[in-house]
Design a protein around this nucleic acid. Structure first.
Lengths: 201, 201
DNA sequence: AGACTAATTAGATATAATTCTAATTAGAAA
DNA sequence: TTTCTAATTAGAATTATATCTAATTAGTCT
């Protein structure tokens, strides 16, 4: 029995996020009831109760049994305990976000600072600058070295202030410099975003 | 640590019964995020995110930490697991209904068939008739016997058709008859409502 | 068959929730 | 100080939800 997906769970919360429906669940957990009876207990009209019971039934939270004209409803405890079982484990919640791209914000930053592959301006905020620098450092090959002149030449294709950008590469640990020779660093050596954010803007 | 009450739980469902808020919980369970970042990921404006985060914060579902201008939010896992722990036990749910009177429907029936202590009409439906008869049988003392004539006299105070009512007392097992002598039966000997409903109207 | 009962469906209205824009606040940088 | 940035608050507009009355359906009783 696998755990419920995002939509099922959302639906579950929506159905239970109503005072009278939650009370219905409470009542039906104790006893089997007719629509008329439930209407009297909650001081609502029968159509309203029917409407709520429909929503509960769609989720299999209640079961119905007919006896003549009367429809008796009761709780389906199995469904409840199934839904209730470890809904909020980390893995479970990670699943909900699987269709939400993590890089949405970075893409937005790139779109707003880069026009037809050219850097319009160097962002003032440290966080946004990192996004731009990560994009720029991709223009350099991994595993080969560059002289300062070479680095400047490549950077100038994107922005005139190559000196600042070159210095920032070092500051953000996207590149290392040894005796005037530059080399791109692997992603796992970069300063974590978390570390960067601990500093001031 | 006692379990949450009805209102807390209802609030919990209301807060989680929203697609974007549930997604926020999902994202924040994986990583700490700024408002700006969350807005980009969910394609919503910052004020909207702020608004949702407020609701989550009121329930202690998220925590906030400031760093300069930026507010970083993350999930408060403790609250989640507290709320998630055995919400739907029978005892728990029984608690929700403690302020809902069980007899609401019976009272409604009484109100509609009895006017200033007089029975307007004998209900056609078996279920409602039982309610009326239970009310009527209270007019007789427990532990003493009545002749048929005495029973009729008392019943006539409430409704002219005493014969029918008297016969129904026997049918519903609210009274017993032995050689023309009637006696009221204790409640625990009555036919259960469940039994009565198994019969047709 | 016709009358009655309980439940449901349809449609209208009232209430609540979501989301936006614009204005405001608080902190950081120039 | 002034400017900029990120977050929040206020207020309006859209959208969704809950509830009711009236009409319909299905089952019973006479």
């Amino acid at each position: 029995m696998n755990s419920p997906d995002f939509d099922t769970l959302l639906n579950f919360f929506k159905v239970l996020a109503n005072e009278n429906r939650l009370k219905l669940v409470g009542i039906l957990s104790q006893t089997e009831c007719s629509v008329e009876d439930l209407a009297a207990r909650l001081h609502l009209k029968e159509p309203t109760i029917s409407h709520h019971l429909m929503k509960l039934k769609e989720l299999n939270l209640v079961e119905m049994r007919s006896q003549g004209n009367t429809h008796f409803y009761k709780l389906n405890g199995d469904t409840l305990s199934y839904l209730n079982k470890s809904l909020f484990t980390s893995e479970q919640m990670a699943n909900w976000t699987k269709d939400i791209p993590t890089e949405a914000w970075e893409e937005k930053v790139l779109r707003s600072y880069i026009n037809s592959d050219c850097l319009i301006e160097i962002p003032a905020s440290r966080k946004k600058r990192l996004v731009i620098l990560k994009w720029l450092v991709n223009k350099f090959d991994l595993g080969r070295t560059y002289t300062e002149k070479e680095v400047n030449e490549i950077l100038k294709r994107y922005h005139p202030d190559s000196a600042t950008l070159r210095r920032e590469f070092i500051g953000y640990k996207l590149m290392k410099r040894d005796k005037g020779i530059y080399e791109r660093l692997a992603e796992n050596l970069w300063q974590s975003e978390r570390e960067i954010m601990k500093q001031k803007n």
